[in-house]
């Protein structure tokens, strides 16, 4: 059999993956019964429904002509995701100033889009703005400097 609609096929597979996780995990919670729904009842029902929808989507991808999946370009995605994770790892230890500077540095190196001068100006601008808005105006207790 030939896949006629790549996007449909992979979407269906993604739905199935979610469904399997939902079904397997909700079996670990007590099911109860309809009149006394346990914590596993609703998620199991949703999981079964999702599996059904995933199966439909996959089977359609063999029948109906559809779009090809264009190439994934993981570079920008991973750089974005990594910079966010890095921010999470750093913020409580290193504080706002260093975290923001490092995030922008990673984005700048990873995507090679702006000049160093632009990135430096952007970093300074964003840090000043963020501190002015979040810390001074809104009084949110964000760590600014590293905690020693």
């Amino acid at each position: 059999m030939k896949i006629k609609a790549e996007k449909e096929f992979w979407s269906g597979l993604m739905f199935l993956a979610f469904a399997v996780v939902a079904i397997v995990m909700s079996r670990g919670y007590s099911l109860g019964r309809a009149g006394q729904m346990g914590p596993g009842y609703f998620p199991l029902a949703l999981g079964v429904l999702l599996a059904f929808l995933g199966a439909i989507t996959i089977s359609q991808s063999f029948v109906k002509e559809g779009e090809k999946l264009d190439a994934l370009r993981l570079g920008p995605l991973l750089t974005t995701a990594l910079s966010v994770v890095l921010f999470g790892l750093l913020i409580e230890v290193a504080g706002l100033v260093i975290s923001v500077a490092l995030v922008i540095a990673i984005l700048g190196i990873g995507l090679r889009s702006a000049t160093w001068l632009e990135l430096t100006a952007l970093t300074v601008g964003l840090i000043v703005f963020a501190i002015a808005v979040f810390v001074f105006a809104l009084q949110l207790p964000l760590p600014i400097w590293p905690t020693v």
Partner: peptide, 18 residues
Amino acid sequence: YRLLFPAIIVFCCIGTYA
């Protein structure tokens, strides 16, 4: 956009953390 997107990412980070 090359200047806009780092700003968006940084604000998403600070905002969510807050």
